[in-house]
């Protein structure tokens, strides 16, 4: 069965035309970049929030505060 430009192939699947394929690919890339940026931001911010204390690890600490 043909519906508009997109064809239904093998009963269930839809064959995307070039423009649809391109738009989907660009959306996927954008979502991927955003998710990667979000992970990078949270990772870096965690390190930043530790601050210099990250390096300050005495072997025996008497001062518990």
């Amino acid at each position: 069965m043909d519906v508009g430009e997109g064809k239904i192939v093998d009963g269930e699947t839809v064959e995307l035309n070039e423009q649809q394929r391109r738009a989907r690919r660009m959306r996927n890339i954008a979502i991927g970049l955003c998710l990667f940026a979000l992970v990078a931001v949270f990772y870096t911010a965690t390190i930043v929030k530790f601050g210099p204390r990250l390096m300050d690890r005495p072997i025996i600490s008497l001062d518990t505060k």
Binding site: G4, G6, I8, Q20, A23, M26, A30
Partner: peptide
């Protein structure tokens, strides 16, 4: 109601 038109053509710039 056509399949063709329900497939989004939106690009990141539109969002």
């Amino acid at each position: 109601d056509t399949f063709d038109n329900t497939i989004s053509l939106a690009e990141p710039s539109h969002y």
